[in-house]
Design a protein around this nucleic acid. Structure first.
Lengths: 149, 149
DNA sequence: TTCAAAAATGATACTTTGTATCAATTGGAG
DNA sequence: CTCCAATTGATACAAAGTATCATTTTTGAA
């Protein structure tokens, strides 16, 4: 939160009431959310739709937010896993059932990436790894339907 | 192409003129494209906008297409790298300058994935890895601006 | 072949997601 | 405190995608 506010001001953006409220919401939201959710939540405080979208865009640029990419589309956003300027490097594990997102603290790509870069002739800037599956909680729930009771 | 048509019919979908034209276009397009591009290209053959979107959705489900996820959004589609039913496993390396996409033939995640799954308690179903960088062609062009001429 | 049923299509209207415009407001440097 | 650029909210718009429905096509059986 403090970090985010610094990140804003360091880049010459003002800390306004709407932005503060948005950041507070971000901090409290662990799960991915849509722009619309965000708007409906904050419109009660008088924040306009345009402002929400403007802030989303800004926060993405400042690495305060990241998009959550699902096969259905990417209308979901989430507070950025790493701290700002984190080299655009997001490794996550996502539950297809409940939407839970775990961040991978240790990047599984460490050695491989440079090898790949070399072979492909690319100058790599970052990567984005999403693992998809079912979290243990959901897994148990599903099995419960058959086995239990 | 043959494979795609089988994939359609195997799942009980009809091979219609619009779908054939769409598949032909897909086959010829190596780069990612937007729905709008596709529509404008094919509207001359009398294919309607709704049909294009319907087909995109269907082709995604059938793994004939995949979305290309960029930080700006994911309005781009591309013919699926693997053959259908490929376990939802897409590893790519994408040029942020020209949009070129190389497919990684060998998955760099082989061992790591199972380790991660175990630690996280997830039952993994698939993953999606995008590496971002600048391809050698674009890299040379950029350097050319300074050095050359 | 022909034919009928189901699936698919194209036109249209609509929803959702996001952007541009612009007058009114506000944060924060001095 | 004051002022000015940055920001805001309202509104209108654009782009991306979906729902509806009457009409057309595909396909499989007679």
């Amino acid at each position: 939160m403090e970090e985010w506010i610094n990140q804003l001001q360091r880049n010459g953006y003002k800390l306004t009431r709407p932005r503060r409220l948005l950041l507070e919401y971000l901090e409290s939201m662990e799960r991915p959310f849509t722009a619309d959710e965000l708007y409906h939540e904050l419109s009660r405080s008088g924040i306009g739709r345009a402002t929400v979208f403007r802030a989303l865009k800004l926060f993405l640029e400042l690495d305060i937010l990241v998009r959550v990419h699902l096969e259905e589309g990417c209308q979901h956003y989430q507070a950025s896993p790493g701290f700002p300027g984190d080299d655009h490097h997001h490794d996550r594990i996502i539950c297809r059932s409940c939407g839970d997102i775990q961040l991978l603290d240790q990047c599984p790509m460490r050695d491989d990436v440079s090898t790949i870069a070399h072979r492909s002739g690319y100058r790599l800037q970052g990567h984005h790894l999403d693992l998809y599956g079912i979290c243990s909680r959901c897994d148990q729930k599903t099995h419960g339907l058959d086995a239990e009771e």
